[in-house]
C-alpha cells in the first residue's frame, strides 16, 4: 500500500496521519512532513499510526529527527500503533521515549 503522511495543525498541536508502508524509500516524505510541522513550532506532535502497516528503522530515525528538531519540550504522542509496528517500537526502546496511546484525545 502506498505511503502517505498528512499534516494538520490544530491549535498548538501538529497532527500527522501515517498510512501504508514506511520504508527507506519513502522516509524522506515523512521527514519533510515533520519539518513542515516543526516550522509551525507546535507544543505537541501527535502521530496517528493505526493505518500504518509497516515501519522500518528509517521511520524510527524520523522520530529521532522529530525530537531533535522540535526540542526536548515538545512531547511526541503515538496513537493507535498496533501489532508488529508497536513491537518494532518496543524492541528499539522507543515506547519509553514517546507517549503511546490507543486513541486520542
Amino acid at each position: 500500500m502506498a505511503f502517505s503522511a498528512n499534516l494538520e495543525m490544530t491549535g498548538s498541536e501538529a497532527r500527522i496521519t501515517l498510512e501504508g508502508e514506511l520504508d527507506a524509500a519513502v522516509a524522506d516524505q515523512f521527514r519533510q512532513t515533520v519539518e513542515r510541522a516543526a516550522q509551525e513550532k507546535p507544543q505537541k506532535l501527535v502521530l496517528f499510526m493505526d493505518k500504518l502497516q509497516f515501519m522500518a528503522s528509517a521511520g524510527l530515525r524520523v522520530l529521532v529527527f522529530a525530537k531533535q528538531r522540535m526540542g526536548r519540550d515538545v512531547a511526541i504522542y503515538v496513537i493507535g500503533a498496533t501489532g508488529p509496528v508497536l513491537n518494532t517500537m518496543q524492541m528499539s526502546g522507543f515506547h519509553q521515549a514517546v507517549y503511546l496511546q490507543e486513541s486520542y484525545p
Partner: peptide, 8 residues
C-alpha cells in the same frame, strides 16, 4: 535503547 530520543 533506553536513551531519550534527544540523545539518540
Amino acid at each position: 535503547l533506553d536513551k531519550p530520543l534527544d540523545d539518540r
